[in-house]
């Protein structure tokens, strides 16, 4: 299975699990953006952070 087909299968499964539908007309654009985001996800998840580094939801300088 090609990488693009794998991404598409995964996207449709995720959408279904969330009760979302991806209109057919949007699929190529959504797929392209997902592949772009995957590059950023790989960068983020490739970084090791200490367990004590908490998510930065608030900022009170």
């Amino acid at each position: 299975m090609r990488e693009q087909d794998k991404t598409l299968t995964r996207l449709e499964a995720t959408a279904e699990s969330l009760g979302l539908a991806i209109p057919d007309d949007c699929l190529p654009g959504v797929l392209a953006n997902t592949q772009l985001l995957q590059g950023y996800v790989d960068l983020i998840c490739g970084m090791s952070l200490p367990d004590t580094c908490l998510p930065a939801y608030e900022y009170q300088p």
């Binding site: 959408a15 969330l18 949007c26 959504v30 953006n33 985001l37 950023y40 983020i44 998840c45 952070l49």
Partner: peptide, 27 residues
């Protein structure tokens, strides 16, 4: 269309990279 397709792709991101991104932000 350009906004829509980016927003849909974002809505389908799993939680792990999003939380990792917020941790990276703290760092």
């Amino acid at each position: 269309p350009a906004t829509r397709d980016r927003l849909i792709a974002g809505a389908l991101l799993p939680s792990l990279p999003v939380i990792q991104a917020q941790r990276l932000r703290a760092w």
